[in-house]
Design a protein around this nucleic acid. Structure first.
Lengths: 227, 227
DNA sequence: AAGTAGTCTTACTCGCGAGTAGCCACAGGA
DNA sequence: TCCTGTGGCTACTCGCGAGTAAGACTACTT
């Protein structure tokens, strides 16, 4: 009863550096996820890691470095999770489905990781927002390429190739938003979430790829594409 | 040449309170938009407003209050802009189109407002993140109702009514993401952006509403909806 | 046992930024 | 002309949080 619950390593029991680093990163991810970068304090990170502040500095450097390492680790996990399932040999539709499914599985598994990557990403002035935005952009480009590939596989209406990137951006946003929505409906399975996104995206793209576009009702003028 | 450019009111020229308050809110919106809530300093807000810090406190209260007022004002603008065009008499499709168009027009017009509402919203621990999340939720509910209405208007497959909220969430996310994408492609018109979203959303919903769902390719099991 | 390398702590410094005290100035009514 | 209220300022206090100095404890070598 002299220490806290067996939950966290109550008070520093002399562990090898590698282990401590992992603990610190875990703690940092959790704290950054809850508080956001600015509101998070190194004291709290140290506390949650069950260790004292100078250790954090000794092992992981400054707050900014620590955050950067967190980002890298979590982003790596996500990329690995998706990369492990998207064999480029497969049909675009199936690649997309597998990627989307892997994404939601990852989000379900590592909520904090996702939170750090998604929320704390864009908000700050410059520091790593750039890096994250870059990762996001890469994802969009990748998905855009996938859509273009799919479009070519079907009989592609020419104009659609100029639209793939914007569509990919929308798709990514829809995925992020669905992931948020998931937080309020935790009983849903990753498969069901992924299926939702695919239904929205693919059934929509299915029409678009076949040249069936939507037109504004009142004005006859079409903006996104020639009729 | 004794003062700065005619750009900002160089150094306090004795204006009525109402005017100053507007200026302060404008400045605060800009600063919060660029820095984010935590990184923004009251000194900078005061500076941008061309005024000294105590005035900000005298007129708008604490930093948190100031931010809250900003949020309220910008959210109000957005709600007004959308609310002004979505006559509930109209067909769901047209309501959605008008709403989406109004949204992108607003974003184009008031970048900072949108930034404050969108980015700085979710990131913080509790303060007003709640209020914004609430607004977002209302938007999702509203759009969800619209989709349900549309679904009923067509021959609705029963199961779809349970999906409208999730679809609305996805749609909102897609809109946000497209708005971000727009920042990198500023030559696009609001109409073109809105048309893109409608194409993705409506052509997708068009299929869904008619019972044409997407199915995972390898596994025969359907998750989102019964075949 | 004594040396030494790596783990871990207490107890600081120091700057930045929220919020305030107290004072100045000008416009208009007496 | 003086008087007062409202607009405005300079110049502080004060706490919080990033980052550090200096040393203590433990385990493994020789």
């Amino acid at each position: 009863m002299r220490s806290e619950q067996g939950d966290r390593p109550a008070r520093a029991k002399r562990l090898p550096r590698a282990v401590r680093e992992r603990q610190i990163l875990d703690a940092a991810t959790a704290v950054f996820s809850q508080r956001g970068y600015h509101a998070a304090s190194m004291d709290e990170v140290a506390d949650v890691a069950g260790i004292s502040k100078p250790m954090v500095y000794a092992y992981l450097g400054s707050k900014e470095e620590l955050f950067a390492v967190c980002i890298k680790r979590e982003a790596g996990r996500l990329v690995d999770a998706v990369g492990a399932v998207v064999d480029p040999e497969l049909a675009p539709e199936e690649q997309l489905w597998r990627g989307v499914l892997a994404f939601f599985t990852f989000v379900g598994e590592y909520r904090d990781s996702w939170n750090v990557l998604h929320r704390q990403a864009g908000s700050e002035g410059q520091p790593f927002a750039v890096e994250i935005a870059e990762g996001r952009r890469r994802a969009i480009t990748l998905i855009g390429a996938l859509l273009a590939q799919a479009a070519v596989a079907e009989g592609v209406p020419e104009w659609f190739l100029g639209e793939t990137e914007a569509m990919a951006a929308a798709l990514v946003g829809a995925g992020e938003s669905l992931a948020d929505w998931w937080l309020d409906h935790p009983d849903e399975s990753p498969r069901a979430m992924a299926a939702r996104l695919m239904n929205l995206a693919w059934m929509g793209f299915g029409n678009l790829v076949n040249g069936r576009t939507w037109q504004p009702p009142t004005t006859p003028k079409a903006d996104a594409a020639p009729a």
